[in-house]
Amino acid sequence: MNPSSEVPGLVSLIALRSPASGPDGAFLQCQNCKKIIFSVEFEQNLRVCPHCQHHHRLTAQIRIDWTFDEGSFVEHDTGLSSVDPLGFPDYGKKLEQLNAKGENHDSVLSGTATIEGLKVSAAVCDFAFIGGSMGSVAGEKITRALERGIELKCPVIIFCASGGARMQEGLLSLMQMAKTTGAVEKCRANGIPYIAVFTDPTMAGVLASYASVADVIIAEPKALVGFAGLRVSKQAGVGKVPDDFQTAEFVLKHGMIDRIVSRKELRATLAGLVRTLGGHLLHAEAEA
C-alpha cells in the first residue's frame, strides 16, 4: 500500500519508487523533516515519522480502523448529504464532483463502536472533504452522535479535523456551531462523558463550538489548533505571532486542553477515559 495515494495530507509527499525498494515498492518523504521513510515502517508507525515524530493526517476511515475495536464501527446517518442552499459559487459543482468520486459521507463519519470492549458513540471528521468544514450535514452528524450517546447511555468520542464552518452554506453553517453546542449541553445534563480529540487541524467554527466544550480534550502533537485562519488573521491585521502559535503545544501551555497524546498512546488513553468517566453508565446498566 502506498499511503501517498490515499492520504489527503500526503498529497505532496513524494513516492520515490526505485528498483531497490521493498515489497510495497515505495519510499516516502516526511512532510515535515523531509527525510526518507520506508512506507512499511511508516504504516507500522501509524503514519508518524520515525525521524521527527511528525503526525501525518489520517483519513476518517483509517482513524476509525486504528482507534476502535476491529470491525466494531457501525456507521450511522449514512443517508445525509449536503445541498447547496445559497447557490454559492462553485459549491454545487464541487459537491457533485465529490459525490461522483464516491465521497458521499461529507466531512464527518458518525456511528457506534467499541474501544477495548466498551461501547461508544463516535464521530470522526474527514479533512479531505472540503477541509473538514462544518456545514449542515456535519453539524447534524455531530449533533446526532452526541444525542446517540444520551440515547445509548455511552460516552461520546469526537475526532476533530476541520478548517471551521463551511462558508459555502453561509449562516446555516454558523448555526451548526450553536446546534452542536446545544447537544453538548444535553450530554452534560444527562451525565454523558464527551471526549474530543483535536487532530491537525482543529480550527475556527469547530474549535469555537462543540470541540472546546468537551469534558476532556486531547490533542495530537503539533496539531494546528486556533480560532482565526491565517488568511483571515492577516486580513484583520494580526501582527507578529509566537513560533508555536496555534499549535497543540500552545493551547496546552495556555490551559485550553488536557493532554497531548501521541498516536500510539491514543487508543489506550481514550479507552481509559471511557472506562473511568463512563463507569457510572456501566454500573447503571449492570443494575438495570
Binding site: 443517508g79 445525509l80 448529504s81 449536503s82 445541498v83 442552499p85 456545514g135 449542515s136 450535514v137 453539524g139 447534524e140 449533533t143 452554506e169 446555516l172 448555526m175 451548526q176 450553536a178 446546534k179 446545544g182 447537544a183
Partner: peptide, 10 residues
C-alpha cells in the same frame, strides 16, 4: 437551534 440546517436525507 436543533432544527437549523438544510440537507437531504435518504
Amino acid at each position: 437551534f436543533r432544527k437549523l440546517g438544510k440537507f437531504a436525507e435518504t
